[in-house]
């Protein structure tokens, strides 16, 4: 069983912090299929957060297909995170680098590029923030 921590200063929504910590634990092998996640009550008793937040995080994880809630028993890991496609990563890195070089050639410095990057991220992943 894993234990959640909260970083109130991170500015990341509480339920997202929970989701990210489960992802992390799956990647690091701390959680494997069959393992149980702490119940909402246990999380709430430790972190003093709204139980709906925990349920929302678990619902998100369930939608991703990583966990499944079994009524009356708890929430269990059913699948670990798919391994990263190293080839795709490498291809994306080279495309990104070309894009950045083009931006620099157009006179943008790294701060400009970062602002653009942030806006693009927000536009693409906007639904994830809500």
């Amino acid at each position: 069983m894993i234990e959640f921590q909260l970083d109130p200063a991170s500015g990341v929504a509480t339920y997202l912090q929970l989701v990210q910590q489960v992802h992390q634990a799956l990647r690091l092998g701390m959680l494997e299929p069959g393992d149980q996640l702490p119940t909402a009550q246990q999380v709430v008793a430790k972190l003093a957060i709204n139980p709906n937040t925990v349920l929302k995080a678990y619902r998100d994880l369930e939608r991703e297909g990583l966990v499944r809630a079994r009524p009356g028993m708890g929430t269990f890991v059913v699948q670990t995170l798919p391994g990263r496609d190293e080839v795709a990563l490498a291809r994306f890195l080279s495309q990104m680098s070309k894009l950045l070089l083009a931006a620099r050639a157009a006179g943008l410095d790294s701060d400009d590029i970062e602002a653009i990057y942030r806006t693009a991220i927000r536009n693409v992943f906007a639904e994830g923030v809500a």
């Binding site: 109130p8 009550q41 709430v44 008793a45 003093a48 957060i49 709204n50």
Partner: peptide, 28 residues
């Protein structure tokens, strides 16, 4: 607040909580 949230988790009760301290409310 831990006790209060446990109760919410256990009994599904609705809560209205007043405070002038924002940090208390943010989590719950």
């Amino acid at each position: 607040l831990q006790s209060l949230m446990e109760v919410v988790a256990e009994h599904g009760v609705s809560v209205v909580l007043s405070s002038h301290l924002v940090s208390d409310l943010e989590r719950v």
